Simulated scan of single mutants.
Amino acid sequence: MMRTSRTTAGTAALLLVFGTSACAGGATTGAAGAAALSDETTMIVPFGAGGGSDIAGRTIAAGLEEATSSNVTVENRDGGAGAIGYSHLLSKAGDPNYLLATETAMLALPLTADTEFDYTDFTPIMSIGEDFTLLVVDARSPFTSCAEIVERSRSERVVAGVSGATGLDNVVFTMVEQAEDARFDRVPFESGGEVMTALLGGQIDIASLNPSEVLGQLDSGDLRALCVFADERYAYDELADIPTAKEEGIDVSYGQFRGLIAAGGISEEATEHWTAAGREFMGTEAYDAYMRDNYLQPDPLYGDEFRAYLEDSSSRLERVLNP
């Protein structure tokens, strides 16, 4: 039975995606017919190449290869604001050889459109940490602060690029609108890389992007960061001068988790296999380097702890997206 919730623009297109993807490729169905682990695993990234999800997926895949001595192939299945990737994993129920690099879209999609899945349809493996987005503008932009952008949006059109209609940046912009009586016109893209290209090309006015996606452009002077949507400033030297939105009177803070899920209905043995591999990866220098290079805050959670985190985060998102 399809779960239903408030439907947003674009639901018809998402339904077509779901109907097509759910029928694709699943050789196993449910725990009773759970497949065995093999030396070949597919890591699904539900967004395009170059964005934060892609970076996370490829890093985790490499770490799991190291931990298990198996081959983990990354497969970008972007489209439908992440729906195509998640629907593809849904079709692999019972097969432990399919993983997905997950983030906030897994929780937001079922709250904003009619979907065939929610987070309970998958097997939670681990959360590796959180990141907080920066509000950035082109270096030539007249905007000098986040407070100025909010004020301008109340009387003039401000165009915001978002990576997927249900991604973290869209959640943050919605929270700003609710808290500050602001209004943004959104243009959705399939990845943070596409959003940044549009910002540099003058197609949009503002964007909310992960530090890892924009640090190079901040260093080169092509982009400027006006604030970070976090409770405290980043401690990293490169970001320490960026004020929080709260410092500018905008009471908005929201972190995106980065994590790993497997198909639903896999065996307990397979779940333990991937959880153990994740723990091993997160004890390596590669994990430390990823967190450091991508400016994430470590928050490792496994199995049931990760499931509880998802339940709490889903409830919080519902209050934002379906007030």
Results as ranks from 00 to 15, higher is better:
Thr41Lys: 14
Ser53Met: 11
Gly57Lys: 04
Glu65Ile: 05
Cys23Asp: 07
Thr42Phe: 09
Thr41Ser: 12
Leu134Met: 03
Ala139Ile: 10
Asn76Arg: 01
Ser38Tyr: 12
Ala22Lys: 12
Phe122Asp: 10
Thr59Lys: 10
Ile149Asn: 09
Ser70Tyr: 06
His88Ser: 13
Ile128Phe: 11
Thr73Leu: 08
Ala24Lys: 06
Gly80Arg: 07
Gly26Val: 02
Ser69Ala: 15
Gly85Tyr: 10
Ala34Gly: 07
Gly51Phe: 02
Ile128Gln: 03
Arg58Gln: 12
Leu111His: 02
Val136Ser: 11
Ser70Lys: 09
Ala83Ser: 13
Leu135Val: 10
Gly79Asp: 03
Val72Asn: 00
Ala147Glu: 07
Leu109Lys: 08
Glu103Tyr: 07
Ala24Phe: 11
Ala49Val: 15
Val45Ser: 07
Val45Pro: 05
Ser91Ala: 14
Leu111Gly: 02
Cys146Arg: 02
Arg154Thr: 09
Ser87Gln: 07
Phe47Val: 12
Thr59Phe: 05
Gly52Asn: 15
Leu135Pro: 03
Phe143Asp: 02
Gly85Thr: 04
Gly30Lys: 03
Ser53Ile: 12
Leu64Val: 03
Thr29Gly: 08
Arg152Phe: 12
Val17Ser: 07
Glu151Cys: 10
Ala81Glu: 00
Gly94Lys: 06
Thr104Gln: 15
Ser145Cys: 02
Asp131Cys: 09
Phe132Asn: 09
Gly63Ile: 02
Val74Cys: 03
Leu111Ile: 01
Leu64Pro: 01
Met106Asp: 04
Thr123Cys: 12
Ala108Gly: 14
Ala105Leu: 14
Asn71Thr: 10
Gly33Val: 01
Leu135Thr: 07
Val136Ala: 10
Arg152Pro: 00
Phe122Ala: 06
Asp114Gln: 13
Ala31Ile: 05
Ala105Cys: 14
Thr42Gln: 13
Glu156Trp: 12
Thr20Phe: 13
Tyr86Arg: 01
Ala62Met: 00
Ala56Cys: 08
Pro110Trp: 06
Glu40Trp: 10
Leu99Arg: 01
Asp131Val: 12
Leu99Cys: 01
Gly129Pro: 04
Pro46Asn: 15
Ser141Asn: 04
Val136Gln: 06
Leu109Glu: 04
Leu100Thr: 02
Val137Tyr: 03
Arg140Gly: 11
Ala24Ile: 12
Ser53His: 14
Thr42Leu: 14
Phe18His: 15
Ser53Gly: 11
Ala105Ile: 13
Asp95Val: 05
Ser21Ala: 15
Pro46Ile: 14
Gly63Leu: 08
Thr59Asp: 14
Phe47Arg: 14
Gly50Ala: 07
